[in-house]
Amino acid sequence: MPAFSLDPPQSAWCAELRALAAERLRPLAEKGEPGHVNRALVTELGELGLLERLFTSGAVDLCLMRESLAYACTEAETALALQGLGAHPVHAHGTPAQRERWLPRVADGTAIAAFALSEPAAGSDAAALELRAEAGASDPVAEPDGGARWRLTGEKCWISNAPEADFYTVFARTTPGAGARGVTAFLVPADRPGLTGTGLDMLSPHPIGALSFDAVPVTADDVLGEVDRGFRVAMGTLNLFRPSVGAFAVGMAQAALDATLAHTAQREAFGGKLKDLQSVAHQVAEMALRTEAARLMVYAAATAYDEGAADVPKRAAMAKLLATETAQYVVDQAVQLHGARALCRGHLLEHLYREVRAPRIYEGASEVQRGIIAKELYATREAAQ
């Protein structure tokens, strides 16, 4: 695989995205209410044409968008990413009717999407999910038009954009005891009877909630992909979005690094500038080294995805793992070098310090990524023997 580097048009586009994020998106983000969907911000993302690119561009472009937006406005980055995560299964596996109804509204920012996989007892072990798609004693009940009908019963938890989304990509168990092979993906509009939700008060400022399904009706027309093949829908979506979570992390790390460069270059301490202290200079160099290494791994994984490489799951896991752990380290060191001012509410680093923690958990915790990497390595070894 060739080494990744930005060509001039890509570099110019990233600079434009950073400027748009700072000038047009950040003011809208600042007017939003923490813990709630900022529909004005999502609409602006649609008017700028960024949401439509979720469905017309590849993984590299997705990473470029997420890194660039994260650098200047993490709220805008997250709003864009959540639209993509919730709607990608519809784009990739939806019926023509599903796509026609929802994707234009996602692209223009008038419909909010959500990806509902995690449950109170099934977070990292997503194959253990317990939300039931029940059809009575045995097979799904036939509808008059020949379609199948189920009722969803159970709970989802830690769902971004819940409970304010307009539709959810929901993963439910259609075959008990079958593990990952018995899960089906459904497109569930938020106004279905029996579907309720509550917001959760989380460290991260974006909306996260829990959903309750009390015999929520779904039919064959709501299935995304094939019955009992929904886990493939989930993992395919995560293989695309995991490298871009890494890009989000790299954008935050770069913002923290640049803030640290500016601060240490002008801050007077011990008779000189902070940057003149060898311990500080070496720390800044380490922050830069790790950020660039993470960036290269993120774009290598994204390039592999766009080229249809066989080792995408391993590369995606590596990219998310390295980038999110790196961002945590860089932001933490940036806070240390800034001192108490970085802990003041409203400071860039105080904001990043709250934002940077969650990506090490969602879309597969760091421990899960290590498990995926090891599994893929051993599978490759066995296949070669």
Rank of each mutant, 00 (worst) to 15 (best):
E52S: 14
T291Q: 10
L131A: 08
T291R: 09
E286A: 13
P2I: 06
L131I: 07
W150V: 04
C344D: 08
R18A: 13
E30D: 14
G32M: 11
V223F: 03
R229V: 01
L337P: 01
A323I: 01
L50F: 06
T326K: 02
D139T: 07
L117D: 00
A365E: 12
D108Q: 10
E376N: 04
A255W: 01
A294D: 03
F186L: 07
L211T: 03
M318V: 11
A29N: 08
G94E: 04
F213K: 14
V227F: 04
H93M: 04
W158P: 02
R39G: 10
H36K: 08
F55Q: 03
A384N: 07
P8I: 02
A342V: 06
P2M: 10
P163S: 05
D332C: 10
G32Y: 11
A21K: 07
S68M: 06
G136K: 08
A384Q: 14
M252L: 13
A269W: 12
A342G: 05
D306W: 00
M297N: 09
W102H: 11
L348A: 08
G199V: 02
R242P: 01
T110M: 08
A323K: 05
G197C: 05
G236I: 00
S212P: 00
L80G: 06
R295E: 13
E325M: 12
L50Y: 09
L103S: 11
C344I: 12
V170Q: 10
G230L: 01
V90Q: 08
Q369K: 15
T198W: 05
